[in-house]
Amino acid sequence: MGKANLISLLFFALALFFFPITVKDSYIITISIFAGINALVALGLTILMGYAGQISLGQAGFYGVGAYVSAILSLYAGIPVVFSIAIAVLAASLLAVILAIPSLRLKGHYLAVATLGFGEIIHILLNEWGPGGPSGFGDIPTFSILGYQISSTNDYFYLTWLVVVIGMILSQNLINSMGGKTLKAIHDSETASLCIGINVSQIKIKVFILSAIFAAVAGGLYAHFVTFLSPSTFSLFYSILVVLMVVLGGMRSLWGAIVGALIITFLPEVLRGFKEYDVLVYGVILTLSLLFLRKGIVPIVCDMVKKWR
């Protein structure tokens, strides 16, 4: 890992540590937890979109599988929460493999179409067969690690963002390694990548699985935090929001995923003041930023800092 990255990570971790202590407002901390959960999903999608050049419109599906499988296993089968999440992640990865193999062997945007369908199917299945149907179910057990019950908002804030930081470190490892270079190569020229011996479709499948794992972990964190699930959370709308987080933050920047997730998660809260116009203002802000901040916020800020020096 580069020095600059290490320093940014350290500052980031410090800021996270002091955030709940200084802010104290449990409402803001709760929203920050959701932002962290979204950041995880966005991080996975950033690697897929920004580095492997593939779009997924079905991250809500993996997010939903992560949440539902873990919730059901812990609630009805009594499996300890950490293990239930692990199994849920495994389930999501399997689905990713099944989905990716046929659609990534073909050229073009088959993955976008396949994931769109996948997300919708999961949404329908949760409605039909999920406990409580469309109205959902509650009483999902909360987290406990080594006998320590994680129930306070502050605890959950630390847990969530610890997972985000770990996800960030692992993603940076990948991106900065030879593996990351092959991803950039595939993004720049698939033909040339193939001709230097890169098994392009296999790598795309791996990255897709990785993005599903991130989403499923996030789903698990979500389920055991809110302790209540209903299918409406895991709709196409959520998948699109994640794409927006990635694009807004900057597709080719891992930090962009976090910035994008923070903005998209907090924006509706900030816009409460606009009352019935909030959705309209939200839409206008997003449209304008996508039009004028093409590269994404983090890369633009980085360029500006470089110019100042």
Partner: peptide
């Protein structure tokens, strides 16, 4: 990469 590929897992965990 072709002759020296280590696999994703070892890259992710550096």
């Amino acid at each position: 990469y072709l002759r020296k590929n280590r696999g994703f897992v070892s890259y992710i965990f550096s």
